[in-house]
Design a protein around this nucleic acid. Structure first.
Lengths: 211, 211, 211, 211
DNA sequence: TATGAATGAGAATTCATTCAT
DNA sequence: AATGAATGAATTCTCATTCAT
């Protein structure tokens, strides 16, 4: 989606531009995001943005892509895709996800807004694809659980998925909100509180889904 | 929020204006909603909108208020606030909510987008208030459940609330999506499917929360 | 300039409308004066204004006329046009003019703004006519003075007129400004101060013009 | 008051824009001045005006500032601030002022309208400051006169100032009106007439103020 | 005649995008 | 490639005037 000119930039500048864009989109929404501001915050000229991207929409679309890619990198580094069931997944990932939110609240917020449809029809395609991928993965987890006997098999996969998604999404939002309120480093107390929240959630989730 | 001029209009016109506004906001978001379009669809002149409301924002804010009020009216008519626990609440309301979505998909969609923060900071205050009210109600339901012994009392109310909200919100979204796809009247098959979805959800919810 | 409808109104209402109009024009200028405000302050419906006057301009023009006529009435009542010279005129009128400013600061302010061209080309004709009349009168005063020997006759009438107008206009502005600052009734001290100002002005004026 | 963009323009363009603005404001007043017209007359796009100034008001305010500054430059070049009394000041400046009016009738008209309060409260602050400065200067002239014995010292400075201002302002208006009627170059006859007017005014002024 | 809602022309302003340097 | 000034389409909002009751 970016033009060749953008790809040729050194990584620092690329990152600066993308972060400036994401910050602006996240703070003001697509319509109210101003190319001028993005350029300024990225330390480049307004015109340069148009050397890098065809138009505002292309910049937005790539912002989404860029954020997601960065995500994936971080997740991949942390959670080597193993053969887990949903509870393990939820538990094992929780500390990593917490870290991620703490280190990259901007990217996380942006991604969440995006998946929650805040940007409307602007990037339906990416959104759909993203949803498809994660659902596929979660369905596999559910399937794993059923095979292992940790998940009841008298309920349809789709419904279990819905249930699982509902609980985890809400939970992630809660964590995000908490983290955003942290001044900088979370206190030990906050960490403990978060941990306890995870455990309780898993308990409920597990009890709900198991046979 | 509307000016006196609006309040004096006959109900038909008021409704026409509000629906036109909501339709536009829902379809294009606040920024891309055009007063001109709203006016046209409501069958009034552009200038008239400004006789009714101070500006676009006031119109939006009142659209939210209007949608919510209409909601409340419908809900009040259907669900006499009884002494229920969460499961009953979920079950008992389901058919009515289904009806509501079917009859007023526009209002429902709009309200959902709104509560999901799609309109950003535009109406934070109303949003907060709305959230406060519904949480208060849900907490009471949870409390009822604990007293009756249908909900485990070794988990914090806040966490149970989170769990409950996660499941029900996701579920409601699913129902909404289904209903929007109906051409007009739902087939018997679709009704059965929906009913079954509700039951499964309650089962999971109940199993998760009960002791 | 007003329509027949206006003339048929009872005097109270007429006055109310005219004062509301003048107040609005004086406070906000022609462009920013709002018919709506005028109507409201006059206690009539906006539409009624258009029953009384063809349009905003006609209302303005008549406001000017009305203010001037009221002026004339007051002046006529006070200063029976006698055979004076400029100094007497200035002196004899001063207390009356002071009273007038005190009683009708609105009309006076409006008239001054008007004669000082604040309303641009809107009422050039009236303005010209007004100027012609007062100059004619002042020239007669100067002529009187020359005949009596109280004004030097080696200076052209036009220049004496200019001189006289310059001094008196400035002086009147000063008085107006003073009066506007009075809370309600002027104190004895303020009266004395004003009186003294008049006398000094006449002294200078006289010394300047006499032979 | 202008944005950085304006300051960076080459002087020609700046001047073109400012003159177009002043012409428009002077001809139609603030309210009726159209940005579109100004832009067109300056040979730039409507949007460019908004690159240069925040809004219409800022453009107006800077028009005033610009006019005054240009004034000052011309006056400074002509009238080296000497130790004069009022009469000398009036006389010595008269030819220069005449020239100025002839060369820059637009700026002069604009400045006069402005100081005479034609633009209402739009630029009260500048107006007040301007008034303060010129009064300060004139009071010094009067003081000089008193010390030298060319001005009577039995009259209060404030009253003398009023008197002086009244006469000179009126005179300047008269000159301005005359000059505006000149086709292009004034005839010898007109110059003589103007000269004679100045002399007569000084005579009256002098006789009025001296002891 | 009085009223006040309806109308729409008109103006300011914004900002994505283009373009000359 | 980078820059930032130039452009003008698009939109909100105002308010004098009209019009139906």
């Amino acid at each position: 989606m970016p033009k060749r000119t953008f790809n040729r930039l050194d990584d620092d500048k690329k990152e600066k531009v993308m972060r400036a864009a994401i910050e602006e989109f996240q703070a003001h929404g697509f319509e109210n995001a101003k190319i001028e501001s993005i350029a300024q915050n990225a330390g480049v000229a307004k015109g340069s943005i148009y050397q890098y991207f065809d138009d505002k929409k292309a910049l937005f679309l790539y912002s989404v892509t860029w954020a997601i890619e960065n995500f994936m990198k971080m997740i991949d580094r942390q959670t080597p895709m193993k053969d887990m069931d949903v509870y393990e997944y939820f538990l094992s990932g929780s500390r990593e996800r917490f870290e991620m939110i703490r280190k990259e609240p901007l990217l996380v917020s942006f991604a969440i807004d995006f998946t929650y449809g805040k940007y409307g029809s602007l990037a339906e395609e990416i959104n759909r694809e993203l949803k498809r991928v994660s659902e596929e993965y979660e369905l596999k987890l559910i399937d794993n659980g059923k095979k292992r006997g940790t998940i009841r098999d008298d309920v349809d996969d789709k419904i279990l998925l819905l249930f699982f998604q509902g609980v985890t999404e809400k939970f992630n939002m809660e964590i995000l909100a908490k983290v955003k309120n942290f001044e900088s480093e979370p206190t030990e107390e906050q960490l403990v509180e978060t941990e306890s929240l995870v455990k309780s959630m898993v308990t409920l989730l597990k009890q709900g889904m198991e046979r």
